[in-house]
Nucleic acid binder design. Structure first.
Lengths: 198, 198
DNA sequence: TAATTTCGCTACCTCAAGTATCGATACCTA
DNA sequence: TAGGTATCGATACTTGAGGTAGCGAAATTA
């Protein structure tokens, strides 16, 4: 039960023979988010996602080896790169927190994030994919931008993402702006504030 | 699909006729935690829990209407009352954080907590039970002890529990003591520290 | 035209939550 | 001691979701 997410055929320089894949990945991603948004993570079955995308279920399983892998790719697509804006450490951290809070607030994104995260609890293979493909890139970007060691950035991510997801999971509603602002106010002093600029 | 957790027959002053229930609730709780600890939340099926407890599956469904309800009751039993120790606000908050961190570190407890929490994301009825039976008592106790309004205590819980569960879910290992200590160091100043004693 | 690959479609397998039923058992009351 | 009642274990079942197998049709290259 491998979690190799990228099932794109090995890209050789020459175009391989046979029928090329139709470019419906984006349609599937959109259908995934909208289905998760409307029905919740557990009721957003692969059958329903396929139907919403106007695609056969088998087509989805040809491209992603599992529902979890599909969600991870969908989230990667939804998140995009971290916009690390600002010159001071405070501005960088603050922008990162507001960015992830906004993403989690987008329809379907927060539910999909929390859902795949919860599946990973009892699925070490999925946890590996989640960590390597979704968390590590952002963690490395933060390490680089902030000049903090790995364990401190991991702690930062645990606090920010954990808090946002716990609120969403417990209430069903994403954190409001004032609470996100309070989160920023709590986190920044602990991580050095404006002491040193980049 | 009701989530009425307490399926104990309505207690009248007179003892009802018929065969009384065998006192195996504690055995079922212990079997639940050990099974979740060994297999993870998703693979800890009700069949397996029943087998581990030496009880028929139907007996479990006579006492709890769903797996989620069983887990909630199991966690209530495992957590017990919050030991709010100390006289200063800092001591109270610090003891509460260390207490929940230790509970989440107990074998099976953290996995069961994270598991039922994640099920609740796409199950509003279970979320209601989780909030009312598991979170509200502790939230009220904290409000009373700290003299903080509801929204601030909710934020406190989101930060502490969210952070601990995110670490557990992402790594499969509970937070180590040094990280819990750092969490305390980060949270306490934001919530007023030692400013006013109780 | 032939080879190759993806497409949609249908049927299927496995597993887990939850339900139904039944004879056996334990308790109370008369 | 006999009868009523509710729980017990055991078995079988239903429902739904993840995931697979195999088919003929369609799209591309050589």
């Amino acid at each position: 039960m491998g979690y190799r997410v990228d099932m794109t055929p090995a890209t050789t320089s020459a175009r391989p023979p046979g029928r090329p894949r139709s470019g419906v990945n984006d349609v599937v991603f959109a259908a995934t988010l909208s289905t998760v948004h409307e029905l919740g993570y557990a009721r957003a079955t692969v059958d329903r996602i396929a139907a919403a995308a106007g695609v056969a279920k088998t087509t989805i399983y040809r491209r992603w080896p599992s529902k979890g892998a599909l969600i991870v790719d969908c989230l990667l697509d939804a998140f995009g790169p971290v916009p690390l804006q600002g010159t001071s450490r405070s501005e960088l951290m603050s922008s990162a927190i507001h960015w992830i809070a906004a993403k989690i607030g987008e329809p379907g994104v927060g539910d999909a994030f929390a859902g795949v995260f919860s599946d990973a609890i009892s699925d070490p293979a999925l946890r590996e994919v989640l960590s390597a493909r979704l968390q590590d890139p952002y963690r490395l970007a933060l390490q680089d931008a902030l000049g903090e060691p790995e364990n401190r950035v991991l702690f930062f991510i645990d606090v920010v993402v954990g808090t946002l997801l716990h609120r969403l999971g417990m209430t069903g509603v994403p954190m409001v702006d004032s609470d996100v602002a309070e989160l920023v106010q709590m986190v920044l002093p602990h991580f050095g504030g404006d002491a040193d600029l980049t």
